[in-house]
Amino acid sequence: MQLSSKLNTPTTRNEIKNSTIYCLSGRFYAINFILLAFLALVFLWWSRNESLDIAISQMWFDSATMTFPLQHNRWLDLINHRLLKDVIIAGAVLLLLRGLYQRNGRRILVGLLFGMGPLVIGILKAHSAHSCPWDLAMFGGKAATFALLDAAPVNSGPGQCFPGGHASSGFAVMALFFLWWPERPGRALLALCAGIALGLLMGYGQVMRGAHFFSHNLWAGWWVWLSQMLIFAGVSYWVNKTRKTKRDGST
């Protein structure tokens, strides 16, 4: 009774509301895994078909000069490739530092989630044999293109271009969903949509430069959300299990 009374005071309730790492429902994860499985099939078809990727990239390719005219565009490089990425990184660092200062576990976790998605993408890119469009023979380079899951040809080029690394910085903003859910679901869903839009926007800027195929960015968003969701699920389960064990032990 004493513990129950303590947990139900207004002061304690606000403290829990602001800082506790909560557990999402099994229904939430089931819906998301079904959606990710469906999207994986769509993206796999898109990547293996290749014609859609090539058609989109050809819109920004000059066949007369065999180059992507916007490859070295100052504004695409400065604003899309550098400034937006730097702003997102700075925001994530500030969120993490604020969480550490306030000893707010949820803010700390979300700040770390910002970096986890791009980290996973970086690892996948490092082991990828797929080269960027500007390196491919059809776009003025020397490398051969091949469909996702096919064996890499001998002349596959420098590789390390799948999934889209730059787009992952924009998709990382989806981590804010976990900061505001469940107290502010509207804001959480808005943050999720903003992260998706930002990732697609930043990724398409790279498509215009010839740095990526569009499907590279779709897969980047897929991997970022999957990694953020799995890490949040694991950490929240462990934290709440530990908290429950301590509470049961103190009663």
Rank of each mutant, 00 (worst) to 15 (best):
M1E: 08
S4T: 06
S4N: 01
S5F: 11
K6T: 10
L7K: 15
N8Q: 11
T9P: 12
R13L: 14
I21H: 02
C23Y: 04
F28V: 00
Y29P: 02
V42M: 13
V42C: 15
L44Y: 13
L44P: 04
L44E: 10
N49I: 01
E50H: 13
D53F: 00
D53E: 01
S57L: 02
L70D: 10
L70A: 15
Q71I: 03
Q71P: 02
R74M: 06
R74F: 09
D77Y: 11
L78M: 14
N80Q: 07
N80V: 13
R82S: 11
D86W: 14
D86H: 13
I89T: 08
A90S: 10
A90H: 04
L95D: 03
L96C: 04
L96Q: 00
G99T: 09
Q102W: 02
G105W: 01
I108K: 06
I108T: 09
L109V: 08
L109R: 03
G111Y: 00
L112Y: 07
G117F: 01
L119D: 05
V120P: 02
L124I: 01
S131P: 08
L136C: 08
K142F: 13
K142C: 07
T145K: 07
A147S: 14
L148V: 03
L148R: 00
L149A: 09
D150P: 14
D150S: 15
A151S: 12
P153I: 14
N155L: 14
Q160K: 10
G165N: 05
A167L: 06
F171T: 01
V173R: 00
M174L: 11
F178Q: 02
L179C: 13
L179I: 13
W180S: 09
W181M: 15
R184H: 08
R187P: 00
C193S: 15
I196A: 10
L200M: 15
L201S: 09
M202F: 10
Q206K: 02
M208A: 15
R209Y: 02
A211I: 08
L218I: 00
A220C: 11
W223N: 04
M229G: 00
V235K: 09
W238Q: 11
V239G: 10
R243N: 11
T245R: 09
K246Y: 11
